[in-house]
């Protein structure tokens, strides 16, 4: 799909926090000179085409008393697809990427309790017979979330 200038502005501006007001899309629609309905239609299309993977609140598991943890596995090529299915079946797996390295599967666990990380990692190890390496964050230097469209 091709993105026009308005789509690109929408993608950039929707990475800002949406206000808690009754008509939160109205200010952006005004800024872009389009109707609220037209803006919402464009956002739906961007979602359907996968340009936006999600639109909604970003939750911080740690602030709710839970935890996040980056994990990695070394998965043999012939077992990769079956392992993806097993790992992704856990609701605690928030995202998962294939990467070029001996450690070729990298995913983030988001759990409601700190113990949930170890429990989920152990469950995945039991199901796959493979080691789950855990890389919890020790210090956060920056989290930018912006991507310029």
């Amino acid at each position: 799909m091709t993105l026009d200038a308005i789509d690109r502005q929408i993608i950039n501006r929707l990475q800002d926090d949406l206000p808690r007001i009754s008509r939160p899309f109205a200010p952006l629609a005004d800024e872009l000179g389009i109707s609220e309905e037209a803006l919402l239609e464009r956002i739906k299309t961007l979602r359907e085409n996968g340009v936006l993977t999600r639109f909604g609140p970003f939750f911080d598991a740690a602030a709710m008393g839970g935890a996040f943890c980056l994990c990695a596995m070394e998965v043999p090529a012939e077992k990769f697809e079956a392992t993806v299915t097993k790992v992704n079946a856990h609701d605690e797996v928030a995202h998962n990427y294939e990467r070029e390295h001996q450690l070729n599967m990298w995913f983030v666990l988001a759990c409601e309790t700190p113990e949930g990380i170890a429990q989920t990692a152990e469950a995945i190890e039991a199901e796959t017979g493979m080691k789950v390496h855990q890389f919890p964050k020790l210090q956060e230097f920056y989290i930018g979330f912006r991507v310029a469209a």
Partner: peptide, 29 residues
Amino acid sequence: EATVMTRFEAMKDSGVIRRIAAAPNHYKL
């Protein structure tokens, strides 16, 4: 509606919600 907005605001203030926003797919951009 007011309750929903107030709850969202409180969760934003406490850090439970980082923001209400879009997650773009880097590849598609």
